[in-house]
Amino acid sequence: MTRFQRWALALTVPAAVLAIGLYVFPIFQVLALSFLEPKPGFGNYVSLFGNAAIGRVVRTTIIVSVLTTAITVVLAYVVAFAIVQMPRGRRRVALFLVMVPFWISVLVRAFSWITILRRNGVLNTVLTEAGAISEPLDLVYNQFGVIVGMVHYMMPFAILLLVANLGDIDRRIIQAARSLGAQPATVFWRVWLPLSLPGVSIATLFTIIFSLGFLVTPAILGAGRVLMIAEYLSVQISSTLRWGVATALSTLMLVAVGLLVAGAMRHPAMRAAFGGGRA
């Protein structure tokens, strides 16, 4: 290690101390609570598996997260694909527009969706007046509304991840495919898509991990009808004071996400994504 490297390492120490103090240590406290509340042992974990209600919460969370991820990645791919084809100036504008939702609080976004989707909302009014529907559609306060809100939240993340990856693809390979007589569709399916798999897989992983922990969006857009893990945990911590069950469930969720990441990392596409796209 050079003198410079040692200094560089030293500079990361305060951040590491903060992260361990404010993140790792509390996580171990959570872990400890899950074994100690209300009495020491594995009781909380055992009760998790016997509890049909928690099973339903977990199932809802998985269904909503998987659907959100699938829709997000497909839509984000379309947008990212269009963005990388744009000339530099227009591309900058498009990326700017993708970033705009980042500046708006998740609460404001959820309430905006209610304004659009509710029975007397913008969308239903337009559809009714256009004669497309006779009865307003139930677009919010259900799973559909929750997924709309979550997809909207996740889109910018997925787009940015995919733009970075698609922008890295060597255009000479595409030109080579065209010069060898491939049709545009063939070029996309046989060249673009395989080359963009690292980007797709990292966007998928990122979106699903994020989706599993959604709290505010399902609570507002689901209005009690879509109960996901994060909201369930928040009720157990702040209202019913069942900290043992809550910490056990969050520990299990952490382990599940850890396994998901570990499993995904074994895939060559994912290793390529972390290796900079060329590994």
Binding site: R56, V57, G224, Y232, V235, S239, T240
Partner: peptide, 15 residues
Amino acid sequence: NEAELQNRFLDFISR
């Protein structure tokens, strides 16, 4: 009974 009831209610309304 509130803790038990609250959880049952949340489960019931989200089915």
